[in-house]
Simulated assay, not measured.
Amino acid sequence: MPSSWLAALEDEASKVLPAVFFEYFRQGSGDSVASTDAAAAWDRYRLVPRVLNDVRDVDLTGSFLGTPASLPIGVAPTTLQRAADPAGEAAMARACAGSGVPMVLSSNASTPFAEVAATGVRWWLQAYLPEERLLAVPMLEAAVASGAGAIVLTVDTPVVAAKRDGDGPSALTQVPPEWLRVNLGDAADAPKARDLGVRDIAWLRELTGLPVVVKGVLHPEDALRAADAGAAAVWVSNHGGRQLARAASTAGCLPGVVEALGGAVEVYVDGGVRDPMSALSALALGADGIFLGRSPLFALSVGGEDGVRRLFSEYADGLTEALRLAGSADVGDVRGLEVREF
């Protein structure tokens, strides 16, 4: 069971956020089937606990691209964080740095790379590539200069899907224009690439000298293509249900991707993970790391930097209990836990 604080987080955010921003954070695309079903998809899994094991000392240490983190959890890229809290990405970054977890910064962030880096957070840059690739070079070089540890190439957005904005104004029209193009430069108004291919993975590696994580993969064959092209990790994601409106759940797609890759590269997942038990299921199914998107945004809205810190603390407490009850003292051993689907 999630803590009462975690369970109430979205409702509490709805009370403090202007309606247009809450809806923007919460919404999916089209009929919102993919976004609505995301959390319930994890509920289909049941774990078979082991017993007669020493679980006095629990190790929650995770690893992202070979670097330890205090938890096997990170923050996924989201935009408009300054709509959640005036300090925006800087507050999110300070919370991540203080909690020992990585943060992925949206290329459409409203805070300069250098300000995020100054918090000491371990951060990666999420990037969309424009049709004219060279327009992205200044942004990518600036990220490298500011200490980005990886490039997260988002591959599920050849076009931006229509969202459910209802009858109200779009959130993007309610913020200062400069929030939406702080780091983008000439790529700000460029159309997204509709010709993305595996060659772009190698191009990014050569240009930046950084590992490339491919985000937005659901099919095992695409995961293999990405890994064969040199991706350092594959990120199972359906963009929070904000792209293809009836995309399959990440909970359902994760096992196939893990099996196909066979440990060749790290596998991450996001989408619908709202509590420690869902996180434990993801780990048991083979995820090396879990990224949270909406939950950190809502925590930032409710409590600022302290709210995000509390989010990680709640996950640490919940995972510790869940691991003990599952008969494991180490998150690294959870992959061997038997999982059944109902």
Rank of each mutant, 00 (worst) to 15 (best):
G336S: 14
A13P: 08
P72N: 04
F312H: 05
D11N: 06
P169Q: 08
G30D: 10
A279K: 00
V273K: 03
G263Y: 02
V121H: 09
P158H: 10
E23T: 14
V152M: 10
R26G: 04
A231C: 12
P220G: 01
G120C: 06
V152S: 00
A127E: 04
S237C: 11
V334S: 05
L17G: 03
L196Y: 06
T79I: 08
D288M: 03
S63I: 02
A264K: 15
G332H: 07
L204K: 01
Y45I: 11
V159R: 14
N238G: 04
T61R: 13
L47R: 10
Y24G: 00
L210Q: 06
S106R: 05
V273S: 02
A299N: 09
S313H: 12
V116G: 02
E23K: 14
L300I: 12
V273N: 06
G74A: 12
S328W: 04
D167Y: 01
P296I: 06
V48F: 06
A226F: 03
A97R: 12
T157S: 15
R194S: 11
P191C: 11
R122Y: 04
G241W: 10
V155D: 00
L218F: 02
V308E: 01
A90Q: 14
T79A: 15
D167T: 12
V137N: 02
K163Y: 01
P72A: 01
F25M: 08
R46H: 13
N238Q: 07
V308Y: 01
Y128I: 12
V101L: 09
L80K: 04
A162R: 13
T111E: 00
D317W: 04
Q81T: 15
R133A: 11
